[in-house]
Design a protein around this nucleic acid. Structure first.
Lengths: 182, 182
DNA sequence: GTTGCCATGTAAACTGTTACATGATTTC
DNA sequence: GAAATCATGTAACAGTTTACATGGCAAC
């Protein structure tokens, strides 16, 4: 019996689980995915990936398998891995996520399609949207009050923050429509 | 005589230098700035800030001073610190910065106003813009070719990447105008 | 006079970076 | 047969997180 069964995983760990949720991959393939695809923001160096795979294996979230034809070693997600991935996908979105962890939210959304029901995926976007509306209002309120004391570059950088959150909000709205009409 | 006079600094180190470039601050004030202002993406925990201050002091980029009236200890940027900050502000923007390090570029832009001449600040934005145009074209080319093989969520997440880069591009263009008319 | 904020730190555990190292397989 | 790519790792180092720890000062 374990005292603490909560497993603490990094964003990279989840990204790896996402990648292999549908098909087993070799460590090298995983590295190349991070290096060459749109997932480029995650480290692909061997000193990061191999220790991460070891970690995930230790937690029994992935397992080594050997494919008959090629005899090469692949990593496959386990049931426990699927369970943890699902839990992560469905975790309620917090204020803090919207303010500081948008890339993580996008990773979750981008890979939840096969494991999560449509109504929960739509709910994810609605929740994301609602928090964004609130956050943008706060940013605009702050800007109204403080912008006269800000230097030009400060103002522009702050404006960038508002702009990019509005873009995210509009993306949420369009994505909700896309999901509904699907 | 030192063999290697290149000082390797983290993004947090630069953020601290940015904050104190105009007025000395206590360690606590610096922490609060990261915690409460728009700079919230940088860690504000004491275990991060105080070691960073020690690091910067070791490199002689900041120094401790005591203000007469309050007798409290403040950190002040040194000439060497100013020099390194300026060098960082003026570093040419690379392809990789635009693809993976936009927050760093925004930090540089947001705090370069007092130390960098206007023509160089405009050049920064132009260079940023040009690299974005190219990156967005690549993303769109990729999307055109691959989107039919992508699952819905993959497409939407990828579209988010395109959208947010277009927003950044438009922000660059507007900011160039703002700088010019100033 | 106690609650809360100002203020500064340390220690352990963990993650990630960089560089090194090795060997198999594929391609020209 | 050489070069490039596939493939898997290790070691040293640096930075971050989390938790712990302490004490002064101000406000109510």
């Amino acid at each position: 019996m374990k005292k603490d069964n909560t497993i603490k995983l990094t964003l990279l760990d989840f990204a790896i689980l996402c990648l292999i949720q549908n098909q087993p991959l070799t460590g090298y393939r995983i590295r190349k995915m991070f290096e060459e695809t749109a997932l480029g923001s995650y480290s692909s160096s061997p000193g990061t990936i191999y220790p991460a795979l070891k970690r995930l294996e230790k937690f029994e979230l992935i397992e080594k398998i050997t494919q008959e034809n090629t005899s090469k070693m692949h990593f496959k997600i386990t049931l426990k891995g699927i369970f943890n991935l699902k839990k992560w996908f469905l975790k309620p979105i917090e204020k803090e996520d919207v303010e500081k962890k948008v890339p993580e939210l996008l990773l979750r959304f981008g890979f939840m399609e096969t494991l999560i029901e449509k109504k929960d995926r739509v709910h994810f976007l609605h929740s994301f949207k609602d928090l964004l509306v609130n956050y943008i209002a706060n940013l605009e309120r702050y800007y109204q009050k403080e912008s006269n004391n800000m230097p030009l570059h400060g103002k522009l950088a702050f404006q960038y923050g508002i702009d990019s959150n509005i873009t995210t909000l509009e993306w949420c709205e369009r994505s909700i429509e896309q999901l509904k009409s699907n």
